[in-house]
Simulated scan of single mutants.
Amino acid sequence: MKVYGITGWKNSGKTGLVERLVTEFVSRGLTVSTVKHAHHVTDIDQPGRDSHRHRMAGATEVVLSTPLRWALMHELRGAEEPSMEELLAKLSPVDLVLVEGYKREAHPKIEAHRRATGRPLLQPEDPAIRAVASDTALEGLPVPLFHLDDTRGIADFILRDLGY
């Protein structure tokens, strides 16, 4: 599986870009999965649901299966968060995995950047960032610059960078 990341500060446009890229790659016939890293505690389950009750009772893993999808929830229960590589190994094979977040990992990435965040670019400090997608013109970048909404151009760049 090929892996490519979308990184950037909070509210920089990462999720929207990932969403558009998934749609673009799927329309080109690729199979795509995503990995999203969140720094905050979040729960994908709902209190009162059977699966939530199983987890709260102490189950380490709960598989929820429906006619449309299945999900595996794994409780860390104090164990260390798995690495990105460990999580990638759990995925079924696909052509491309898009990773949102994991800004400190060494996989190839595009940085999403919005001027309104007021945050500096990550690119100067991260050699794994191969391009920047921004809503504003940025001068003197040592990597390609795309408009944040240029989904097709960004997708073309990612595929070329991965050797497709």
Rank of each mutant, 00 (worst) to 15 (best):
I154Y: 01
F157M: 14
A106V: 14
G163I: 15
K10G: 04
G163M: 11
R53T: 06
S92H: 06
K36T: 10
V97G: 00
H37D: 11
L72Y: 08
V99N: 00
P93C: 04
L98D: 01
F25R: 00
L21I: 05
D45G: 03
T23F: 03
D135N: 14
L87R: 07
V97A: 02
R160K: 15
T31W: 03
T117K: 05
D45F: 04
R77C: 08
L91H: 08
L17E: 13
K10N: 13
H74P: 01
E86D: 12
V97M: 14
F157E: 11
E81V: 11
A128T: 11
A89F: 03
S27M: 14
H107S: 02
R20V: 00
G163H: 08
D95Q: 08
T60M: 11
K10T: 04
R77H: 14
L91V: 08
H37W: 03
A155F: 01
M1S: 12
T34K: 05
Y164T: 02
A59E: 01
L121A: 10
M84C: 13
R130G: 00
H39K: 12
H147M: 11
T7L: 00
D45W: 08
F157N: 08
A57D: 14
T34H: 09
M73N: 00
D161L: 06
S83L: 11
D95L: 10
A137K: 13
T31P: 10
G101E: 01
E111V: 07
T7W: 00
D161W: 01
R115C: 02
A116L: 07
M56C: 15
T31V: 05
V41Y: 10
A89T: 08
Y102G: 04
V99G: 00
V63K: 09
H113E: 10
E81Y: 04
V22C: 07
M84E: 12
N11Q: 10
V3Y: 00
T42V: 10
I110M: 02
V94M: 03
K2T: 01
V41R: 13
E100R: 01
T151S: 05
T42W: 02
A79F: 06
V3F: 02
A137D: 11
A57T: 15
L145F: 05
M1C: 07
S51L: 04
G29N: 04
E24A: 15
V3P: 00
L17D: 04
V62W: 07
R49Y: 05
D50N: 11
Y164R: 12
S65P: 06
K10S: 15
P93R: 07
S134T: 11
L122W: 00
D149M: 11
E24T: 04
K103Y: 05
A57K: 09
A137W: 15
I44C: 04
N11F: 12
M56I: 10
Y164G: 06
D156N: 13
D95H: 13
K36W: 11
H39N: 15
L162T: 06
H74W: 07
L159T: 15
Y4M: 07
R77N: 14
